[in-house]
Amino acid sequence: MAAEGKAIDALGQFELQPFLGPIGEAVRFSQSNAHMLAAVGIISGLMIWGMARRAIIPGRLQAAAEMSYDFVHDLVTGQVGDEGKRFFPFVFSLFMFVLFGNLIGLLPFAFTFTSHIAVTFTLAMVVFILTTIVGIAIHGKHWFSYFVPEGAPKPLLPLIVPIEIISYLSRPVSLSVRLFANMVAGHVMLKVFATFVVMIGGAGILGIFGATLPLALNVVLIGFELLVAFLQAYVFAILTSIYLHDAVHLH
């Protein structure tokens, strides 16, 4: 499909298709939604099933569940401090959702819902609105002093305050674009080199030897993508914690 007509179709993998043909078409349910549901199901399964036995010596599933819990717990309390425990469930769900979205997308025939700016921007807006509401709820009117840096000269304030506001508004944009761009770039690279394998491999005996080169590169890339999948979920979670820290502590 990818190498049809000697053209590399690297972006076709991001197209939305109705899930289960006419059934999905009728209720506007795409494969992206189906993968989100799958991610939520796998996470719930891991946490509920993994912790069901509550063994003192954890098995594999329980160890995975406990490790992810501990990891996010240390991340949130390390960044936000003790007040951060209130936000642990939020950051944990966000981290697991993004992580499993990235990981599921690496499986063959699967779809990466984190490669859509609509999804990542929605997640980033949730973070943005939550941090703003938390900041206003905790500090009241005093929260607006966030846009007035300490020690700034008075005559410069009309210039500095709009710049601070733009800087604050750019947070959800940078948060979502970072995740989206990383996932798209990785999957496009994988697709391009996979297409090279087919194209070169089709060129006779010599081509089969030549095709091993992009194939080897793709093996390396998959490993790299696993790292990126984890790293981007981590960055998303830690930036959320940093924004929460700013909202709770203000200065």
């Binding site: 240390d74 390390g78 960044q79 733009i166 940078s174 960055v235």
Partner: peptide, 29 residues
């Protein structure tokens, strides 16, 4: 109560983050 973890610091990570920050602020403006 200091930070126990920071953002990952690699040359590529920092470079990409800086680029995204500039572009997103510019787009919002």
């Amino acid at each position: 109560a200091g930070p126990t973890q920071g953002l990952p610091t690699g040359p590529w990570g920092i470079g990409f983050r800086a680029g995204v920050e500039v572009v997103s602020a510019l787009v919002v403006g």
